[in-house]
Amino acid sequence: MNLLNTSFERVSYGVQIKTSLLFECALGIAMITYPKLHNQLEMTRAELDELKIRLSSELTAELDYCQEHNTWKMLLQLLHVKDFSSPGEFYQFLKSLSESELKYYALPFVDIMQEKNRLAASKGDREAENDLVLACKGHVFFPQLIHFVCSSKHTELLNHFQALVDGWYNEVILPEKDWTSGVLERDVLEKRSISQLESPHKTVLKAAGIDYKPEQGIADVILIPHVAYRPWTIQADLPAAKVFYYPVSDSSLMKSTDPFEPPGQLVQKLKAIGDEKRLRILKLLVKKELTLKEVTVLVGMGKTTVHHHLTLLKAAGLVHVKGSVYKATGDSIKGIEKEIFTFLHKET
């Protein structure tokens, strides 16, 4: 059979880089309510325990509810509807929505083919709800989330969102608001500078550590920095857009004019390769691309331990992942010697 291909194949995408303390708020809530990753965070277990002790009983109750129903995902969906400057503005927007509108925005985006079912399910169509569940039956929590959203009462959702966001914002975000805002703003400026010099693909790779190639139906990639979930990059889907909530760089965390203070990204790279197990993993990935399972077999370590090492290598920009396959980032490896030389010989 002969084929004349007249279809359009996307060769690039746009990149949006934005930040908000409300996204930081939602990601902090997501982090604290996902205990499976608590041993793989930059925040130590002692720091996590100290944070939990400081939280009010009212906020703790809302977080328990959030953990049971994954309402953090609903929050992130809602925060993408428009830009919000404060929790009050966000809540006023939620109150302006009808019940079906609130549920539509809270329901997860599955794919463009399921948008009719998403809309119908938000209006109480049980058949559409079940079809939406079937479309994502392999997902770890989307089916339960969809049933929860569709069966929830409007006022209960509103009250939960207000109590959850206000509680975390006031008790966790506000005490360090100036510092957190400064870190996020510095990182956005850093990534926008990269985007002016690099292609969208390399911008995403350097920011999020993800080797994301253009795909049909995705016009934009939205990059949103965070502090709370370091060193993890969280991926999400929106209509016509892919979202990466990525960890801020070490250099963004530090605000220093000390010429003897090394760049945070360089320190992160050196720490990553300063461990013999990670260096061994990196050598394997220089030789060939490997899945997590393959790396686990080759190094003879547990899956969780290997994943932790890969996460640190990815956060340092030495490894990137596409789907389930990990690969060494050649440019970053070659550039370490140059970065060290530049720092050591920088005028003071």
Rank of each mutant, 00 (worst) to 15 (best):
residue 143 P to R: 04
residue 8 F to R: 13
residue 76 L to Q: 05
residue 94 L to A: 04
residue 13 Y to V: 05
residue 202 K to N: 13
residue 175 P to W: 02
residue 213 K to H: 11
residue 59 L to Q: 05
residue 113 M to A: 12
residue 46 A to K: 13
residue 299 V to D: 09
residue 244 F to Y: 14
residue 186 R to T: 07
residue 48 L to M: 13
residue 232 W to A: 14
residue 202 K to C: 06
residue 154 H to M: 12
residue 317 G to N: 09
residue 327 K to R: 15
residue 300 G to H: 05
residue 153 K to T: 01
residue 87 P to M: 07
residue 260 F to R: 14
residue 222 I to D: 11
residue 330 G to V: 11
residue 86 S to N: 07
residue 181 S to C: 01
residue 147 H to G: 05
residue 223 L to G: 11
residue 251 S to N: 13
residue 38 H to I: 00
residue 49 D to K: 09
residue 332 S to D: 15
residue 334 K to P: 14
residue 120 A to M: 10
residue 185 E to Y: 07
residue 161 F to A: 09
residue 251 S to T: 14
residue 318 L to T: 09
residue 193 S to F: 06
residue 274 G to Y: 05
residue 73 K to P: 01
residue 316 A to M: 07
residue 240 A to P: 03
residue 278 R to H: 10
residue 96 S to H: 08
residue 248 V to M: 06
residue 240 A to T: 05
residue 118 R to V: 02
residue 247 P to S: 01
residue 214 P to K: 08
residue 124 G to W: 06
residue 102 L to A: 03
residue 319 V to W: 03
residue 158 L to N: 09
residue 266 L to H: 03
residue 219 A to K: 12
residue 339 E to I: 00
residue 74 M to Q: 13
residue 2 N to Q: 13
residue 122 S to F: 02
residue 282 L to N: 03
residue 60 T to D: 12
residue 166 D to I: 00
residue 282 L to R: 02
residue 41 L to K: 01
residue 136 C to D: 07
residue 267 V to K: 10
residue 183 V to H: 08
residue 307 H to I: 06
residue 269 K to D: 11
residue 143 P to E: 07
residue 251 S to M: 08
residue 261 E to D: 12
residue 277 K to Q: 09
residue 274 G to E: 11
residue 81 V to Y: 10
residue 126 R to N: 10
residue 247 P to Y: 02
residue 162 Q to M: 00
residue 22 L to G: 04
residue 287 K to F: 12
residue 194 I to R: 15
residue 61 A to E: 13
residue 243 V to H: 14
residue 200 P to S: 08
residue 126 R to I: 11
residue 342 T to D: 15
residue 277 K to D: 10
residue 42 E to W: 04
residue 141 F to R: 03
residue 280 R to S: 14
residue 188 V to F: 05
residue 347 E to K: 14
residue 64 D to P: 01
residue 1 M to F: 14
residue 306 V to E: 08
residue 7 S to L: 15
residue 248 V to I: 07
residue 348 T to E: 15
residue 103 K to V: 00
residue 230 R to E: 11
residue 253 L to K: 15
residue 143 P to H: 03
residue 262 P to Y: 03
residue 162 Q to C: 00
residue 333 I to A: 12
residue 25 C to I: 04
residue 6 T to I: 12
